[in-house]
Design a protein around this nucleic acid. Structure first.
Length: 290
DNA sequence: ATCCTATCCTGTAGGC
DNA sequence: TGCCTACAGGATAGGA
């Protein structure tokens, strides 16, 4: 569910809401997420003040005072929810953080693929979850040539390559398809076979698609919500994702769904040709020979 | 090193 | 209506 734009939206929401607040009490569900939540998490973050909220790729980093950082990943179905007045019990709420003024911050995650881990702020970037991440494309705008050089020799399909968080951090299954469609690159091309020009187009579209999605508070396909339980509106802008069989908005061709690395990929075979453009001569010769 | 597969978990949509 | 299966925006360990 949540990719970079959704996580950035939540980060901004958290920054606007809980920055400077001091945690008064914590309640845990006791259920394990991707990893078990530390049993003493509550005692370790009680009385800590929230100093900053940052993000790398899909990871949120909530820095507290006393050299503590809460690392959070939303997985497929995680949500942070803020309440001025907390409602009655909700299912799948694994952490409830209460502040002194009665407001609360909840972490809800039905599928429990999310992550919550407390680490030392000074050593946070050495955490195994963060240490292997590639650059965050919002913090560090990517250059086509840098991507081109780095992908040299990679035989994996460009779609799967963009999902690899150690290459670029933050792109997920929806935006990978959208980015490649706008760049006019077939998702089936080997990453190492893209030309420098094509990487320029991919780099431009990474910045443009992610930026516009942040402006619209992300894409709500089903689970994702902002901190105030509102849907994002980038879903209106999707050109290929979940549109199999429908007409391409650019060329009128039919959007196709394929499976790559066991994930759905959507693309327009006409706009996103598998072959690089060939000289007109070879086409003419093929016709005359028929 | 690279690449692929299976796995963790619940909710939901679609077929019958 | 209800039952069953397939699938869903994620990362990661382990094997080829």
């Amino acid at each position: 569910m949540p990719e970079l734009p959704e996580v950035e939206t939540v980060r901004r929401n958290l920054e606007a809401t809980v920055l400077g607040r001091t945690i008064q009490s914590v309640r845990l569900s006791g259920k394990k997420l991707r990893d078990p939540i530390s049993r003493n998490l509550g005692t370790r973050i009680r009385n800590r003040r929230i100093e900053s909220v940052s993000r790398h790729g899909k990871f949120l980093l909530i820095d507290l005072d006393e050299d503590q950082t809460l690392i959070s990943h939303l997985g497929m179905s995680g949500r942070w929810l803020f309440y001025d007045e907390p409602p009655g019990p909700l299912p799948h709420v694994h952490v409830r953080i209460a502040f002194a003024d009665g407001t609360e911050l909840w972490f809800q995650d039905p599928r429990r693929f999310g992550l919550l881990r407390l680490v030392s702020t000074s050593r946070r970037s050495r955490d195994p979850a963060l240490s292997k991440l590639g650059p965050d494309p919002i913090a560090t705008p990517l250059r086509g040539n840098w991507l081109f050089e780095r992908a040299r020799g990679a035989r994996v399909a460009i779609k799967s390559y963009l999902l690899d968080q150690s290459r670029v951090a933050g792109i997920g299954n929806i935006y990978a398809s959208e980015i490649l469609h706008r760049a006019g690159v077939s998702p089936r091309r080997p990453a190492g076979a893209l030309t420098a020009r094509e990487w320029d187009a991919v780099a431009d579209e990474i910045a443009r698609v992610l930026g516009e999605a942040i402006d619209r508070m992300g894409t709500t396909f089903s689970m994702y919500r902002t901190l105030w339980n509102e849907p994002g509106t980038y879903g209106d802008q999707l050109l290929v994702y979940d549109r199999a069989g429908e007409p391409c908005r650019r060329c009128g061709g039919t959007i196709r769904r394929i499976v790559q690395s066991q994930r759905s990929t959507f693309y327009c075979p006409r706009c996103q040709s598998l072959r690089r453009r060939r000289p007109a001569l070879s086409i003419a010769r093929g016709q005359s020979g028929a």
